[in-house]
């Protein structure tokens, strides 16, 4: 235990990086998910085909492979582009933070695509018709009827996506981002206590997972408030 003492602040900053990574990737995940679902639902054949390819590839490939491809691939591309302007440049890479959040967001976004698509299709068409029959405009129906019904359907699976997302942030240590797992590796280097350090990382992640689980439970309760039975 005392081995950790000198490392508290490093783990704290590492955890903060995880949190930042989580929120940036979460934002992008929702974005990719909405674009993906929109394309799949659109009448446009090309958009549909691209979205289908997207979900097949990103749901069927190991996460670590996507991440490494992204990081090393972008580095090589960026270096090549930079060399056009300045041939003396040897190596440019995109910061691991951005490579990581993009890769994770693309992976989780492919799952979110299916969730959002399912939620959109899961809304009872009777509700939409009822709203239209009352003379409510298409746009208003979308905002006041479809969106609330949709997010209620999407919330439980999306909660699981958020859990996958937070856990995938651990992978980014592999490309050198200084989050908790990376901090642990450094701490092990000087203390020689791998079990202690990795258990600590596990505990930190368990804490994050718990927070997400509890938040999603609260949100679900809020979303389904009107369904509660009053006695």
């Amino acid at each position: 235990m005392e081995a950790i003492t000198g490392w508290w602040d490093d783990f704290f900053w590492g955890s903060l990086v995880v949190v930042e990574l989580f929120f940036v990737a979460l934002f992008l995940t929702i974005l990719f998910g909405l674009i993906g679902a929109g394309s799949k639902l659109s009448g446009n054949k090309t958009a549909k085909a691209i979205a289908n390819g997207y979900t097949i590839i990103f749901r069927g490939t190991p996460e670590i492979l996507v991440l490494l491809l992204f990081y090393f691939g972008s580095a090589i591309t960026m270096t090549a582009i930079a060399q056009i302007f300045d041939p003396t440049i040897k190596f440019v890479d995109i910061p691991p933070f951005w490579a990581g959040s993009l890769a994770i967001a693309l992976i989780i976004g492919s799952y979110a695509t299916e969730t959002f698509r399912g939620a959109f299709l899961g809304v009872d068409p009777g509700q939409i018709e009822a709203s239209r029959a009352l003379g409510v405009s298409n746009l208003q129906t979308f905002i006041y009827v479809r969106i609330p019904a949709m997010w209620r359907l999407a919330l439980p699976p999306f909660g699981n996506h958020m859990l996958s997302l937070i856990k995938d942030t651990a992978l980014v240590a592999i490309i050198g981002l200084e989050e908790t797992l990376f901090v642990a590796e450094q701490a092990i280097g000087t203390t020689g206590k791998p079990f202690t350090m990795y258990i600590l990382v596990g505990a930190i992640y368990l804490g994050f997972s718990t927070i997400i689980t509890l938040s999603v439970m609260r949100l679900e309760k809020y979303a389904n408030k009107h369904l509660e039975v009053t006695r």
């Binding site: 856990k167 942030t169 651990a170 079990f195 596990g202 992640y205």
Partner: peptide, 23 residues
């Protein structure tokens, strides 16, 4: 179940491979 689903599999692998020999 809660612990194994709540932590990254990579961390679990590291705990078992790098961590356990400490004990």
């Amino acid at each position: 179940i809660y612990i194994f689903r709540g932590t990254p599999i990579l961390v679990q692998i590291f705990i078992i491979y790098y961590g356990l020999p400490q004990l």
